[in-house]
Design a protein around this nucleic acid. Structure first.
Length: 279
DNA sequence: ACACGCTCCTGAACGC
DNA sequence: TGCGTTCAGGAGCGTG
């Protein structure tokens, strides 16, 4: 499922066809995803130019001329597909293709989301910070305001396990289940340990590890899961080698560790970790 | 402020 | 072979 690296990779894939392009037509094929689409979304997108395509946490943001931003979240199973390039026919919409955007350049961007956990909204660009979904987000993990002192401070007094704390988007925005498991594994920190009971030194060491895990995933094009299947023009599919995630029962890959990856449930979610080397 | 459980949804994987 | 059941999970939201 798309986490920050996947969204970033999708953004980069969309960049050449969307940034600077004018939307010729937008086909909104159902009234809602997780929430209703904004009123008249299709009509409001039509004829507008995309000034900038950027990302905040797991949200894709397309600044439109004039003054409005299209906010897109891919949820669990959202995908983007590009077709209609080089004179090829644009892909006709199929099952779960909920929004189809055609540009004047001839490209077609198809948003597909079987589980419909995604969302789209339109919001004034200068007031984006006040959008209910963006307002409370913590710092970008790859940005300057996510740093060692910040994380140490934010985890003070947190009795919840570090795994849960790192999934809290108010603390750091964009981490999901997979990369939290990977980061904690690399840092040798047990996902079960209460956040407030981790030595400051180890939290400080975790910060660059989080960045490293995300950067590697972005470099390799993100990660792939069941929900992502390779197809022509589909963005966001990646092959990434996880050391912990999805490796229940397999040998721990930490250097020198003889442990085995275990799978537990925390806050209703699977955690993969090595009980041997993660303390 | 924090912590927890519930909820949305469908396809894939699994069991009988 | 076919059907029913379980699981996956981002993250808002209500409750304590």
């Amino acid at each position: 499922m798309p986490e920050l690296p996947e969204v970033e990779t999708i953004r980069r894939g969309l960049l050449p066809v969307l940034e600077g392009a004018r939307i010729r037509h937008a086909d909104v094929r159902r009234p809602d995803l997780r929430w209703p689409f904004p009123p008249e979304m299709g009509a409001r997108l039509m004829g507008r130019r995309v000034l900038r395509l950027w990302r905040r946490s797991k949200y894709l943001l397309a600044d439109l001329d004039p003054g409005e931003t299209l906010i897109v979240h891919l949820g669990m199973s959202g995908r983007m597909m590009i077709s209609g390039l080089d004179g090829a026919p644009p892909k006709p919409p199929g099952r779960h293709d909920h929004v189809v955007i055609d540009t004047e350049g001839g490209a077609r961007i198809t948003f597909n989301d079987p589980r419909r956990f995604g969302m789209m909204d339109l919001w004034p660009t200068q007031a984006l910070g006040h959008h209910r979904l963006l307002a409370g987000l913590g710092p970008e993990p790859l940005g300057n305001s996510f740093h060692e002192d910040y994380l140490v401070e934010r985890l003070k007094g947190r009795r919840s396990p570090i795994k849960t704390a790192l999934l809290d988007q108010k603390i750091v925005a964009g981490l999901g289940n997979i990369y939290v498991c990977e980061a904690l594994h690399r840092a040798g920190i047990s996902p079960l340990r209460p956040a407030a009971r981790i030595a400051a030194k180890r939290i400080r060491a975790l910060v660059p590890v989080i960045r490293e895990v995300l950067c590697e995933a972005i470099e390799s094009g993100g990660s792939s899961l069941r929900d992502y299947r390779r197809a022509d023009g589909e963005l966001g599919y990646f092959q990434h080698n996880f050391r912990a995630y999805g490796r229940e029962g397999k040998p721990c890959l930490a250097p020198g560790c003889k442990g085995k990856i275990a799978r537990i449930t925390q806050a209703g979610r699977s955690t993969f970790h090595c009980p041997q080397c993660q303390r």
